[in-house]
Amino acid sequence: MSRHVVTFTVNGVAQRVEVEARSTLADTLRESCGLTGTHLGCEHGVCGACTVLVNDIPTRACLMFAVQADGAAIRTVEGLAAPDGTLNALQQAFQDHHGLQCGFCTPGFLMLSTWLLERDEVLSEATLREALASNICRCTGYQGIVEAVRSAARKAGRWAE
């Protein structure tokens, strides 16, 4: 059982953690970095609750070991709002369009959608729905989530009418 010292940045802040090889990135963020915004639903890749951005790529943090993230730049839901707590445009859209109820799935949907809005591609109804099918929500029935990302994409000039 090997242990490793791993360094990476999370939301721009340098972190140095000592982990067992088997610690997933999700568990490491939660337990070693104290960042519990990244949620774990299924722990085997099907629900998307644990989605974070690793070097700007959406990643299921339950399917990556922390030791593999050595040197990476990681972004989590904690990095979205302004330091004073003001929600960013995407988070605000989730609130405005009832994109969450219990909130368990929300960090995953927010990080996945952050990536969708940062790519060089415009979103359409079909591509948005296909992309959001990656993650599971047990509460909202998804319509509010689709509306929230569609509205944020429109405002950001990334929506194909």
């Binding site: 790529i57 990643t59 299921r60 996945l112 296909e130 992309a131 099918a133």
Partner: peptide
């Protein structure tokens, strides 16, 4: 390719 899993899984 687009039938394989979901976008984040296809990235890794």
């Amino acid at each position: 390719a687009r039938h394989i899993a979901h976008a984040p899984i296809r990235q890794r």
